[in-house]
């Protein structure tokens, strides 16, 4: 199917698409930004999401989707340059600053984000969040990790199992 003319008379303007979150909020966003999602890109190339119909995203709530789109909008220009080989150092530094700040958020939001990035196939976002979670784990003992990441307290049986396991894995604890 050839690229359809969207009947909104948006000549010259960037093509827009509408995304609908699981709680029925409609988000209008540039097609280029939404196309950072491999999943959406196919639909958009097929002419979906324009005009009155939106693309429903039953797995993503509006709070998460708004965050996802914030990432996509920021990263779309660089992605359009094919990974931005000719981006200036300033641009790259700015993106890095944005990324660092972007993942400086509540853990529960991080987990919703990584699930959404996974479902929508936005690789850069998935890696960004994964790296952030890995950084929260790095250099911590198992008990510290459990506390930091909100694991429930182990039951006595679990604790016993963990201790036995720790002995078995002495080679990883020196």
């Amino acid at each position: 199917m050839a690229a359809p003319e969207s009947g909104d008379g948006n000549n010259g303007a960037a093509r827009m698409v509408t995304l609908i979150s699981s709680d029925n909020t409609r988000f209008e966003v540039e097609a280029a930004a939404a196309s950072l999602s491999q999943t959406l890109q196919l639909t958009i190339l097929d002419g979906g999401g324009g005009g009155g119909d939106g693309i429903p995203l039953p797995n993503v709530d509006s709070a998460t989707l708004s965050k996802v789109l914030e990432y996509c909008i920021k990263h779309a220009p660089a992605a359009a340059n094919g990974g931005a080989p000719n981006a200036t150092a300033v641009d790259r530094a700015e993106l890095e600053r944005f990324d660092n700040e972007f993942v400086n958020i509540d853990q529960s939001v991080l987990y919703s984000l990584i699930m959404a990035a996974h479902n929508l196939e936005i690789e850069g976002l998935q890696s960004l969040v994964a790296k952030k979670v890995a950084d929260m784990i790095k250099g911590k003992s198992p008990m510290e990790i459990r506390r930091t990441l909100g694991f429930p307290d182990p039951t006595p049986e679990e604790q016993a199992e963990m201790n036995a396991h720790m002995l078995e894995y002495g080679w990883a604890y020196e």
């Binding site: 890995a134 784990i137 459990r146 396991h165 720790m166």
Partner: peptide, 17 residues
């Protein structure tokens, strides 16, 4: 997530739960 960690820490996650 584990792919951003080094091997020793990766193995150490085995006692988390």
């Amino acid at each position: 997530i584990m792919s951003f960690m080094k091997a020793r820490q990766v193995v150490q996650t085995c006692v988390l739960s």
